[in-house]
Design a protein around this nucleic acid. Sequence first.
DNA 1: TTGTAAGCGTTATCAG
DNA 2: CTGATAACGCTTACAA
Lengths: 336, 336
Amino acid sequence: MPKVGIRDVAKLAGVSTGTVSRVLNNHPSVTRDLRARVSGIIEELGYMPDPSARSMRSKVSRLIGIVIPDLTNPFFSELVQSAEQAAARHGYNIIVMTSFDHAAKEADRIGQLTSRKVDGIILVPSNDFHTIKLPKGLPIVVVDRLMPGYSGIGSDHRSGVRLGVEYLLKLGHRRIGFISGPKHSVPASDRLKGYRDAMEQNGGKVQNAEPSLIAEAAFDYESGRAAGNYLLARARSERPTAIFASSDQQAIGCMRAAYDLGIPIPAALSIVGFDGIPLSSMTIPRLTTMKQPIQKIAAAAVAVLLNERPAPSVDHPILFACELSEGETTAAPQPD
Amino acid sequence: MPKVGIRDVAKLAGVSTGTVSRVLNNHPSVTRDLRARVSGIIEELGYMPDPSARSMRSKVSRLIGIVIPDLTNPFFSELVQSAEQAAARHGYNIIVMTSFDHAAKEADRIGQLTSRKVDGIILVPSNDFHTIKLPKGLPIVVVDRLMPGYSGIGSDHRSGVRLGVEYLLKLGHRRIGFISGPKHSVPASDRLKGYRDAMEQNGGKVQNAEPSLIAEAAFDYESGRAAGNYLLARARSERPTAIFASSDQQAIGCMRAAYDLGIPIPAALSIVGFDGIPLSSMTIPRLTTMKQPIQKIAAAAVAVLLNERPAPSVDHPILFACELSEGETTAAPQPD
DNA sequence: TTGTAAGCGTTATCAG
DNA sequence: CTGATAACGCTTACAA
C-alpha cells in the first residue's frame, strides 16, 4: 500500500497537483464541479495530506503550543483540555509542555515550540517569568497570569476577589482572613488588591486589613494548609471568622487545617476559594468559590492565535468576569 | 534576520551541508574536531533545524501522540505530565488529545496523529474502543486500560484490588461492598476479579459476594456517589461496613454519599479507593487508596515507543505493582 | 571521513 | 480557472 500522495489524486482526477492543492486549501478559484470531482477522488483514495510537507512550504504547522506551570493543577488541566477542543474545531493540534514554574525550563520549552514552528503559543507564565525574553514575531498570548507588556487573556481576578469578599461581608463577617498567592506573582497581587478593595470600602470597622489577617502562600494545597494553620491557630477572638483563599487548592488545604484544629465549617469558619475547579464541588462540605470561566478563556486564546479575533492590546487584556458558586462552606458568623 | 539554515552553517564552517547534517544527527563518522567546529558554528549562529523539513525526509517527527479519555481526570493528567517529562528527556514532544471516551472521536484523533506522522501513540482506550481498528504499522502502546490483542503497559489492577480488599478483611470487615467500573471496561472487570479473588478465598463467610454488594458505575465522582448511595441507603444490618471503590473519584463520591446519609467515616464505614491521585491525600479524612505507579507506567510507555525497551508482547503486558497508601478512611468495623 | 546531489510531498509563482 | 515547475530545508545514498 504505497502511500497515496497528491500526485496520485491528481493523476486519477485528470488534473494537476496544483489544482488538487487548491482544492485541499479551498482556494476560491476552483470550479464547483471540478472541486467536487477532486474531493471525490480524495475521499475514495483516502488521501491525507502530509503535514510536514505542507508546513515546510507554507510555514504553517497547524500546531499550537501551550506551556503551563503544572498539568497536575486541575485549573490548568481544564485549561489545556478546553484549548485542545477549541483548537480541534479549527483543525489544529496542541503540544503541551510543563514548566514546573521554572523560568529556565520555560524558556527552553518556548524555544522548542518556536523551532517546531508552532503557529502560536498559549503561555501561563511561571512565577519568575520576568527573567526570560520571548522570541519576537511568534504570536504568543499570555493567559491567566497576566504580564505587563504582553497581550493577555484571563479573568478579572481583582473584582472577582472583591465580589467574593463582599459576599462574606454581606453574610456579616468582619474579621476576614486572606490567603494570598506568591509575593511576586501578578495575579496574586491582583487578588490581594481585590481583597483590600472590599475591606477598605467597608467603612471603619476593618478599615485597615491587619497584616496578621493576610498569609502569603503558594497556590497549592500544602501551602494553603500551612497558611490556614497560621491564620487559625490563635485565640478565638483573634481568629478570622472567614477566610478567602486565592485558589481552590489553598482553600481545600485550609479546610484541612481547620479540621485538624477542630474548627467546624461553616459553623465557626467560612471559607471561599478561587478558580472553580471541578474538585471544589466534591469536597465535604462543598466549597464556595469564585469560578473562572476557563472555557471562555481558552477559546478566546485560541481564537486570538488563529486571528479569528483581534489580539488584545498590550495594556488592555481581555478579561472575563468571575462568578460566585455557592457551596456549603459559608454561613453567617457565630455570635462571639 | 533571514533565518539561518543548514547551508549557512555549512558555508561558515567550510564544510558541506551533509557534514552539518551528520553532526546534527550525531552520526558516528565525523571527526571529533570537525564535529566540534561545526557545533561551534551552530551554537554561534543559533541555528535550529527545521522539524518539518527534517521529518519530511527522515520520516521521524520526534513527536509522540497521547490520547486519553479525559484530561480532567487527575489520573490521566498526571499520566500526561509524566509522559511529557519522559519524552522531553529524549528530545521528544507530546501532542495531547482527548477522546471523551467516545470511540468515534478516538478514531478520528488517532487518524490525525497518524497523518501527523507521530513516532508513536500512547493510548488509553475509550470504553467502547473495541469498535475501532488501529492503523497497522504505527507503534502504539495501550496504557492503563489494557486491551487484549494490543501490547500494553499498566499496573496489576487485579492483584492491586485483591490486596486492598484483603486489607479490609484483615481489619475485620466481612460485608465489603464494591463499586465496579463500567461493565465492558477491561480494567473494570480486572478489578472486579480482584475483589472476587479476595472475597472467595476468605473462607465460607462471604464465599459468594452477594450481587447486592456490587454496584456498577462509571469511574467519575458523580457515579461513585450514586453507587455509594445505592450501597448505603439500607438498613444498617444490610449495609456494607466497608467499600472498595474502583477509582479514587468514585471513592470520594462515595464519601460524599456517606456524609449525606450521616454515616461517619471511618467509624461506621471504611472506604478504600484506587489510583492514588494527589487529591486522595487532600480529602477529609484522607483517603486510603491503592496507588498506581503512574510515573513508572508513563516512562515505560515512552521507552517502548522509543525502542529503548522491547515492546511487551500482545498477551504479556508490562505490569507494575500497586501499593497501599494508608489514609484515614479505614478502621476496624464497629461491633453490630 | 567527507562532499555531491537527488529527492521527500506540498505550495506558490507564472504562464497560458 | 488551471497547469507546469521551481522552491521549501533537510537527509541520505553514492561517490570520491
